[in-house]
Deep mutational scan, measured.
Amino acid sequence: DNLVIALHSYEPSHDGDLGFEKGEQLRILEQSGEWWKAQSLTTGQEGFIPFNFVAKA
């Protein structure tokens, strides 16, 4: 599955970004460039995340 774990917390800075906490698990929905579309397994919310803040779970 496309699961990743957050290496750092991220505060959203643009509409459509997904904020998350360090250690949170996310499911990657789309990989494109440096911003990936993801869904939080904690909150169920979707949005874009910086790819370098996460690692394969």
Rank of each mutant, 00 (worst) to 15 (best):
H14I: 08
G44A: 06
D1M: 11
S9N: 09
L41Q: 05
W35Q: 08
D1A: 11
E11W: 14
L26G: 01
E30K: 07
L26E: 04
A38M: 04
L26R: 00
T42R: 15
T43P: 00
E11P: 07
L29T: 06
K22A: 10
S9F: 06
I28Q: 00
W36H: 02
L26Q: 01
L26K: 00
E21Q: 13
S32N: 15
N2A: 08
K37G: 01
S32D: 12
D17T: 11
G33F: 03
P12E: 04
D1C: 15
Q45N: 10
Q25C: 15
I28N: 00
F51W: 14
Q31C: 15
K22H: 05
N2D: 11
E21H: 13
P12D: 04
H14A: 11
K56V: 14
S9W: 06
E24H: 03
L29E: 02
V54M: 03
G47A: 01
N2E: 08
H8D: 08
K56H: 14
L29V: 08
A57T: 12
Q25V: 15
G16I: 06
L41N: 04
G47S: 01
S9M: 06
A6C: 05
Q31N: 11
E24Y: 01
F53M: 11
F51L: 08
L18G: 01
F51H: 13
Q39T: 07
F51S: 14
K56L: 14
K22G: 04
S40G: 01
E24V: 03
A55W: 09
I5V: 10
H8P: 00
N52V: 06
K56G: 11
N2H: 11
K37D: 00
W36T: 07
L29W: 04
A57C: 14
F20R: 01
E34L: 14
S32G: 12
A38G: 05
E24S: 03
G16Y: 09
N2W: 13
G47P: 00
E30L: 08
G19H: 08
T42W: 13
Q39D: 01
E30N: 08
L26V: 03
G44Y: 07
V4K: 01
V54T: 03
A55I: 14
D17Y: 15
F48Q: 06
E21W: 07
I5Y: 11
Q45Y: 09
G19R: 12
K37T: 07
K22C: 09
I28K: 00
G33W: 03
E34F: 15
F20A: 00
V54E: 04
Y10T: 02
A6R: 01
Q25T: 15
A55T: 14
L7D: 02
I49H: 00
F51N: 09
P12W: 06
A55C: 13
H14L: 08
H8T: 10
K22V: 09
A38F: 03
Q39Y: 09
F53K: 07
K37N: 04
N52E: 12
G44D: 04
F48C: 12
E24R: 00
G47D: 01
K37P: 03
Q45M: 12
L41K: 00
G23C: 08
L7K: 05
K37C: 12
E21Y: 11
A55M: 12
E11T: 14
Q45P: 00
K37A: 05
S32F: 13
F20C: 05
L18I: 07
G33E: 04
S32M: 11
E21L: 12
A38H: 00
V4R: 03
W36I: 10
F53T: 06
S40I: 06
